[in-house]
């Protein structure tokens, strides 16, 4: 197999790795935001449900949940496509962690600013979306970056459900060429490059929305 062929296989794998990572991050952000914001409504039974979600999903290994969804659910007649299985396992687990990040960040919003907005006559939802959420997202940047990195690093589990990501391509290449060391080193570098890209992207976003003197958590 030529170098070019190997390169193009790994490149297509990288495409899937990015796809899985982005899909799981999106799931995590949406579910994390939903849990944190719904928790803000202070409805007792709802909060209990949310607490159970974050409690369970933070305690269960990604691979176990992935297998439950992908290999287990078909047993009761529910077959879940591979990418969706990743989103329901890795995505929701990351979401449970992000929910905690967002919740903490919401608590960090200054009460007096909220009271000032109430005193102006703004509604709860206006205050939430004009003051609390924008500040919360800025407070959450370090926590989000942490979680996004974790998602990228767990993404190789995708190969176990048949997604042709970097890991899957590398396994195939290693078994046909018998040059495991070089190949696994190469994909290590590839993951690192994707990580750096993600970092640069987050930094750019953070800079775009940076506010002088706004303290991170």
């Amino acid at each position: 197999m030529s170098f070019l062929q190997m390169f193009s296989l790994l490149a297509s794998g990288a495409g899937y790795t990015v796809l899985v990572t982005v899909a799981c991050i999106a799931t995590a952000v949406v579910s994390g935001l939903l849990v944190a914001l719904l928790g803000r409504l202070r409805i007792k039974p709802l909060n209990r449900v949310l607490a159970v979600y974050t409690y369970i999903f933070r305690g269960i290994p990604v691979l176990v949940l992935l297998f439950i969804v992908f290999f287990g659910l078909p047993g009761i007649g529910l077959s879940v496509p591979p990418l969706v299985s990743m989103m329901l396992s890795l995505g929701l687990i990351a979401g449970a962690y992000l929910a905690e990040v967002f919740r903490g960040a919401l608590d960090a919003v200054d009460e007096s600013e909220i009271m000032a907005a109430e005193a102006m006559g703004m509604s709860r939802s206006q205050i939430l979306f004009a003051i609390e959420v924008p500040q919360m997202l800025r407070f959450s940047v370090p926590g989000m970056l942490n979680e996004f990195t974790t998602v990228l690093k767990y993404s190789p589990f995708a190969y176990t459900v048949g997604i042709p990501d970097i890991m899957k391509q590398a396994l195939a290449l290693a078994s046909t060429t018998l040059r495991g060391l070089e190949i696994y080193l190469a994909i290590g570098l590839l993951y690192f490059a994707i990580y750096q890209l993600m970092l640069a992207l987050m930094k750019a976003v953070e800079r775009r929305f940076s506010v002088p003197g706004f303290k991170r958590l």
Partner: peptide, 30 residues
């Protein structure tokens, strides 16, 4: 509340907004 301006001891400016946008927020929303 919209007819009563309130000024606090600790200023309570929205820290993620410039001085200008601190003033425009309620004008836009309310």
């Amino acid at each position: 509340r919209q007819q009563i301006g309130f000024v606090f001891q600790q200023f309570a400016l929205y820290r993620h907004l410039s001085a200008l946008h601190n003033v425009t927020l309620a004008l836009r929303k309310l």
